[in-house]
Each structure stands twice: as C-alpha cells, then as structure tokens.
C-alpha cells in the first residue's frame, strides 16, 4: 500500500472519515506519521477553540480583577486562583466526574433559525467536556497575564487621554486596551504555546476516545503498544508539536509586530520563547 493511499485512508481517521480499522500488523512509518498527524487535528481543535473563546473571557476576568467593587473583584480573583492554583490534571479528572454525574437532559434552542439540540451527555465527551476545562483554565492563566499588563499601563498615557478629553469606554477602547495587549503579548504567546502542549494531557484525563477517534498521543500510545517500540511514535508527536509551536510563534509574532508598529524599533517588545513544562 503506497503512502498516498495511507493518507487517503487514515488522514481524517480521527474524525471518523475513511478506513475504520486501525493498522494491526506490519505498521509502516508512513502509517504512524499519518495517523498521529490525523490525531493532531484534535489537539489543534482544542487549542484554537479554547484560546479564541478564552481570550474574551480572560479580558473580562482581568477587568473584573482590576475593578473596585468587591462583588466583581472577589469572584474574578477566586476564579483565577482556583484554576491557576490546582493542577490541570486534577481539573480534568474532576470535571469528567462532575459531567458524568449531571442528569441526562436534552435542551432545544434556536440560533439564527437553526434548531439545535443540546444534550448534557455531550459534556462527558472529550470534544465538549475537555474543551470546557481547557477554556476555563486558559482564561484564568491569560487573565492573570492581562491583569498584570493592565496594571502596568503607563500613567502618562492615561493622563494624556484625560487631557484630550477622551474618557470612559472610548478611553478603554483606544488607549487602555491596545496598550494592555501590547504589554501582555509576549507572555500571552507563551501561554498559547503552553496551552497547545497542555492538550496532550487530555489523553491522560478520563475523557474516553469515541470509536478510536483520539488525539495525537492516543495514536502514539496505540502504536507504542502495537510495535513495542516507543522510540518512533513519541518523537513523531514531539516533532508535530515543534512544528505547531513554530506556526504559533509566526502568527503571534505578526500580531506582536502590528501591536508595536507605532513604537521606535528599540522600544519594541520582542517575543521570547520560554518553555514551561507543566501546568
């Protein structure tokens, strides 16, 4: 079987498209690369969705933590503390058990004229349950970063805004928010990389892989068990993640340049990749 054939059969295997049976004997390198790459679809899915929803929630949380009234500040502080202070691993386990305990309910609602049937059962599946945990977790971490940046917005900038009569929402939108983003961006880039790496933990959490549609580590583990040789599949996963990290750095670097475009070259903040192991 040629490698092209393998790509057609297994390229979208993790989504349930293509050949159902996983290779059992005579596993080729090509099959390993393709199937693990197919599993990467899930890692990318979790990473992108958690990051993009988490970004907005994190901004809200950071604003909440910086707010004066205690009934806004305290919940935000506690949320950030709970999710940053405990291991993600435990959060996954706990969330899974909690979602399993939920009563089986079906909810129907309409969005843009399309009838959507939502079930609480979905939360016990990885695609929604694990995503929720990752979303809440990255929100907490990013909120702490944004909060720190919000606190270090130069006072002179705000005074200048006041002098020009820019106040309220307009001041936030035109002055505070862009500066916060600019200051927070290098740290946020590391958080994004770190979140993508954390998606590998989903494999170890209790969330089951439905019909062998797993993530990259699921297939790597499958191959390590089948071929009794962990020295090929795990480095493939590592290489995929290195490539993914490169893509993130490119994308976030472009955004960083845009955020810094009004500054003289020497005052710009550079992105520095600071790997972190565990969250």
């Amino acid at each position: 079987m040629s490698c092209w054939q393998t790509i057609q059969d297994y390229g979208l295997r993790s989504l349930g498209i293509g050949e159902r049976l996983l290779p059992r004997s005579d596993i080729t390198l090509c099959e390993q690369v393709v199937l693990i790459g197919s599993g990467m679809i899930w890692n990318v899915y979790f990473g992108i969705l958690a990051l993009s929803f988490g970004f907005f929630f994190a901004v809200a949380l950071a604003m909440g933590k910086a707010a004066k009234p205690w009934f806004i500040r305290k919940p935000a502080e506690w949320f950030i503390f709970v999710f940053r202070g405990s291991p993600l691993f435990i959060q996954f386990f706990m969330a899974y058990e909690a979602f399993v305990m939920l009563p089986r309910l079906g909810v129907e609602f309409e969005v843009f004229g399309i009838l959507i049937e939502a079930e609480t059962r979905w939360l016990a599946r990885a695609w929604l349950g694990a995503l929720m945990v990752l979303f809440l977790n990255t929100s907490a971490y990013a909120a702490e970063i944004f909060y720190g940046a919000l606190r270090s917005v130069p006072r002179g900038d705000l005074e200048a805004a006041d002098a020009y009569g820019i106040t309220g929402w307009k001041r936030f939108r035109r002055i505070t928010f862009p500066t916060t983003m600019r200051l927070a961006w290098p740290a946020y880039t590391n958080e994004a990389i770190f979140l993508f790496h954390a998606t590998t933990l989903i494999f170890f959490s209790s969330f089951p892989a439905f019909q062998q549609r797993g993530d990259a580590l699921y297939y790597a583990n499958y191959f390590a068990d089948r071929t009794f040789n962990p020295f090929i599949p795990y480095p493939i996963v590592a290489l995929y993640f290195v490539a993914l990290t490169m893509c993130i750095i490119l994308l976030f670097g472009a955004i960083n340049r845009r955020l810094n475009r009004h500054l003289p070259a020497e005052a710009r903040q550079r992105l520095r990749y600071r790997p972190n192991l565990i969250r």
Binding site: F81, G85, S86, I90, E97
Partner: peptide, 20 residues
Amino acid sequence: PDWRFWYFLGLLVFYLCFTR
C-alpha cells in the same frame, strides 16, 4: 456508588491550600 467526584474535589482543595 461512584464517589470519585468527591475524592477529586478533596484533592483540588488540598492543592489549593498547598499553593496558598
């Protein structure tokens, strides 16, 4: 019955106290 949730909740509280 399945009480794993409560045990994990205990662990979560343990870790939170430890970090605090």
